[in-house]
């Protein structure tokens, strides 16, 4: 169709003029911040392990994640996390703290719509897919392992 051809031509025309993200600086920031958050996680892990040597690694791991999640929610609450995200990009999205931020930020944002329809309903607008796909995938893995286990 003629219209489609024209649209394609225009898209191409626009594509050529798109401003480019500064590739390497943004990559570097993502690398540095992402690495740093992981190191903080390792630091928390080692500290808990040192203070409570009797705990199993698995338990220490859970505590570590809970502490990171707490810190990220807090930083979201005081309005710092979005500033980190502004320059770190994926560096602050991919660590578990990014998940925490994506739960906390809509909760804060929709507070004015009330606790039930605001905070509670909107809490999972961004993180919802993470939980839904994660749980579905774990069920799938469970089914596969169950079938394998039958033989």
């Amino acid at each position: 169709m003629d219209k489609e051809k024209m649209n394609m031509a225009y898209s191409k025309f626009v594509e050529n003029r798109l401003p480019k993200t500064k590739f390497f600086p943004s990559l570097l920031w993502a690398f540095l911040v992402g690495g740093l958050i992981c190191c903080i996680g390792q630091g928390i892990f080692d500290s808990i392990g040192a203070i409570f040597p009797s705990l199993e690694d698995k338990v220490v791991q859970s505590y570590t994640l809970i502490i990171i999640i707490f810190l990220a929610s807090f930083l979201t609450g005081i309005g710092v996390y979005d500033r980190i995200g502004n320059f770190a990009g994926a560096g602050s999205i991919v660590p578990i703290s990014g998940f925490s931020n994506s739960v906390a930020s809509p909760a804060l944002e929709f507070k004015r719509e009330g606790v039930i329809f605001g905070v509670c309903v909107k809490m999972f607008t961004i993180a919802g897919p993470v939980i839904v796909t994660g749980i579905s995938a774990s069920i799938l893995v469970g089914i596969i392992y169950y079938i394998i286990g039958l033989f």
Partner: peptide
């Protein structure tokens, strides 16, 4: 933790 802390900080 994510839900609980988000709820808490949303109230604060």
């Amino acid at each position: 933790a994510a839900v609980g802390f988000a709820y808490l900080f949303a109230l604060i």
